[in-house]
């Protein structure tokens, strides 16, 4: 009771609140007879950011419609049975139990891990190298900076078709070059079944993903490099630091937050890749290139077993969620240059 009275007193004491607490004992009803117009009261209740809510509302509606709703729908699909268009019934985790006994799915997990890890490592290393080169470029720098973005901005399906012709099973451009162009022909290499041999096909898919994602790394890291204050390097130079020591003790530590974010996004995009595998191999040969997205598409759309497809697609979600939380926490800790 005392708490209630204190609360009433507190509310009543708020200057300009425009409302009086009812005198009736034990009542928490507000006497609105002397209140301001409703619109203004709402405005006051929500604080000074009412306009802000209005501005974000369309985005919230769109996000809810296009992200939140499909996510929960997929979750429901994964926990229910029935084909596409049929009435669905709750079956708990049965779809997940089923895919864990599916050897193609187990192979898909392995493929996805190899694909994502190798591709993200390549993108990190070469993305950093490319960013450093871009930073050093003094002539034609706009041209170079624009050019490196081409693989990233061109439609993936279209560029992958180009790669598909390069790795074509019968008329691979690379095999042709290995056979006909000097001095490559002296090496006696090839022909290789780029898309017909299991590990080679997965390597090709990872390579194309690396090619497509490299600009994202390079440009983002480049932005991080530009943001590092020049005084730090000047101070290090005064102390006689070598280029390697500057890179190792200044550049890399200060780029860590950028690297963490870019690696996080790239890991998520890479794990969800679909186009590259679908165009190059359709999951073959012998399911050696199926990723979560392609296998989920096969089961969920082609085979109409939408519950199974959703279970495959969502399988990594808990793990990804934890990775995202940890990585974002790390980023928050390290966003300052500590000067």
């Amino acid at each position: 009771m005392a708490a209630l009275r204190n609360a009433q007193a507190y509310i009543g004491s708020i200057k300009g609140y425009g409302m009086a607490i009812s005198e009736a004992p034990n009542s928490i009803l507000l006497d609105v007879s002397t209140a301001e117009p409703i619109g203004r009261r709402w405005r006051r209740a929500l604080g000074p950011d009412l306009d802000g809510y209005g501005f974000v509302l369309p985005a919230v509606i769109i996000m809810t419609a296009l992200i939140v709703y499909p996510f929960f729908l997929a979750l429901w699909f994964s926990l229910s049975d029935g084909m596409i268009g049929e009435t669905r019934h709750w079956i708990g985790l049965k779809n997940f139990a089923y895919i864990l006994q599916d050897h193609i799915f187990l192979q898909t997990i392995r493929n996805t891990i190899i694909f994502a890890v190798s591709s993200v490592i390549l993108k990190s290393v070469f993305g950093l190298a490319l960013a450093l080169l871009l930073q050093r470029a003094t002539r034609w720098k706009r041209f170079f900076r624009g050019s490196v973005l081409i693989p990233f901005v061109a439609p993936t399906a279209l560029t992958t078709l180009g790669w598909w012709l390069i790795f074509d099973p019968t008329y691979s451009h690379i095999n042709w070059a290995l056979k006909h162009i000097w001095p490559l022909n002296l090496l006696g290499l090839g022909p290789y079944q780029w898309l017909g041999q299991e590990y080679l096909a997965l390597a090709v898919c990872a390579f194309v993903n690396f090619w497509r994602g490299l600009p994202f790394f390079a440009v983002t890291i480049f932005a991080g490099l530009v943001a590092i204050p020049a005084q730090i390097y000047e101070a290090a130079e005064t102390d006689g630091a070598s280029a390697w020591r500057k890179f190792w003790h200044i550049t890399l530590p200060l780029l860590r937050p950028v690297l963490a974010v870019v690696t996080l996004f790239s890991t998520i995009f890479t794990l969800g890749d679909f186009n590259i595998v679908y165009v190059l191999t359709r999951g073959g040969p012998m399911n050696s290139t199926h990723l979560f997205a392609t296998y989920s598409f096969t089961e969920g759309i082609l085979n109409h077993d939408i519950g199974l497809g959703a279970a495959i697609a969502l399988f990594l979600f808990p793990l990804l969620f934890v990775i995202v939380i940890l990585q974002l926490r790390m980023v928050r800790k390290e966003t300052s240059y500590g000067l």
Binding site: P169, Q193, L195, G196, A201, T281, R282
Partner: peptide, 17 residues
Amino acid sequence: ADIMAWDDRNNNVCLNS
């Protein structure tokens, strides 16, 4: 060995080429 990676277009191309 290339037949291990063929799609529906490849056999046409192989014959017609």
